[in-house]
Design a binder for these strands. Structure first.
Lengths: 219, 219
DNA sequence: CCAGTTATGCCACTGAGTGGCATAAGCGCG
DNA sequence: CGCGCTTATGCCACTCAGTGGCATAACTGG
């Protein structure tokens, strides 16, 4: 037993890195706790920093803004998604299907303890906090652009300025948002597997959304 | 000649309202001008308010934040879109088509002088300014939710928690963003009609984006 | 143990956004 | 016209997010 399994540690990193990761994680957990209790606007950065015993300057070396600390869990998922996209085989099926598989695979990789719970708190906060919602949307937009770069780097499409790859990505993200919202509003404590279920449902509803017709509501 | 056509005026409103609209318009125009010249972050609200000879307090009675003043033109379009949705007949065609028609009709109504130019400046700024992009996305998300309310109020769908109406709206908005981006990157000074063209192209590409397959790029 | 690197803390500062209150500008009415 | 009534505006002080600079402490490798 030359080493104990590090509690919040990853691989066997240099001490300095582990410390940094530990304060980062403490910031995320404490932030979600405080924000959930008193609201995003009801907690100042100074208070958060005091709680974690960190200077405000250090906070901004870990996160770009107050919103980011509360959205880190979701961002991890999308970063993994981009990683996956770099190597996934396209096969013969539609790109849209490949993208969905990449997202499912990324979800499988979110094995960190309590990840689903953190995402849940994060999304419920975002629902009540416009600036968090805005930042989340912006981040997803950036992810979509990065993914589009990967697609164009790895694959070739008929037309060089084809809109369809980009739309396929935006559709994936729209369906994901839809699924995450459904999942967030589930009663009790939804699990990671529940999220996969909701994602499948949203993806399945995608094709029908273009052909759906409406019935006028009877008075 | 009992009345001259009011330069920036709408209907014959009470004097007080006209004044308010005039300072509002002055704020939008001056903001777009200054932001374009020195960047969004390169202009303080105090400077903007000085230029329009307005107190900062008054600025915040017209706009909710620094970003909003620069995004007003686009927001007008989407507000008109919601208006249109309230009365548009569904017919026998898919909801998605009706939504597209509603957007085209709204675009037709943007007859204000120089509207296209303002949108152009606004979007080009948003491309370089993360916080503007985020706010724009957030606004569109809110519009999508409002439109969903209208759909559910006016029409009846098979299942009460059907995801498809919502996805249809998100798809409309995704395609619109795609189109506006194309339009923004056109060389020269694209017109309102050009925007309609780009919208049509994006909507047409929507169905194919789900079935598109990729060819591996040859080394 | 000793440099060299890198994270941290502290301090002062800018700028967005808010609340309160006095004042002035438009408005309706006698 | 002049009178109150309503509503927009201006001013002031304040909170808080976010930044830059610089000294210091903590890890690292030899």
């Amino acid at each position: 037993m030359t080493a104990e399994p590090p509690p919040s540690g990853d691989a066997r990193l240099p001490l300095r890195e582990r410390k940094k990761l530990r304060t980062r994680q403490a910031l995320i957990d404490t932030a979600l706790e405080l924000f959930t209790a008193r609201g995003f606007g009801g907690v100042t950065l100074d208070e958060l920093c005091d709680a974690v015993e960190i200077s405000k300057r250090t906070f901004f070396r870990n996160f770009a803004g107050k919103e980011d600390v509360a959205m880190a869990p979701t961002q991890d998922l999308w970063r993994t998604f981009l990683d996956d996209l770099e190597t996934r085989e396209p096969g013969d099926r539609p790109v849209a299907e490949m993208l969905q598989e990449a997202l499912f695979a990324s979800l499988e990789r979110m094995t960190e303890d309590g990840w689903a719970h953190r995402v849940l708190l994060s999304r419920r906060l975002a629902g009540k906090t416009p600036s968090m919602d805005a930042h989340g949307l912006h981040f997803c937009h950036g992810t979509s652009r990065a993914a589009l770069d990967i697609l164009h780097r790895r694959f070739r499409f008929d037309a060089p300025d084809d809109l369809r790859p980009r739309l396929a990505l935006d559709l994936l993200i729209a369906a994901s948002h839809c699924a995450i919202e459904q999942w967030t509003n589930r009663p009790g404590t939804p699990t990671r597997e529940d999220l996969a279920t909701d994602l499948r449902a949203a993806f399945a509803a995608l094709p029908g959304s273009l052909t759906l017709t409406a019935a006028v509501r009877a008075e």
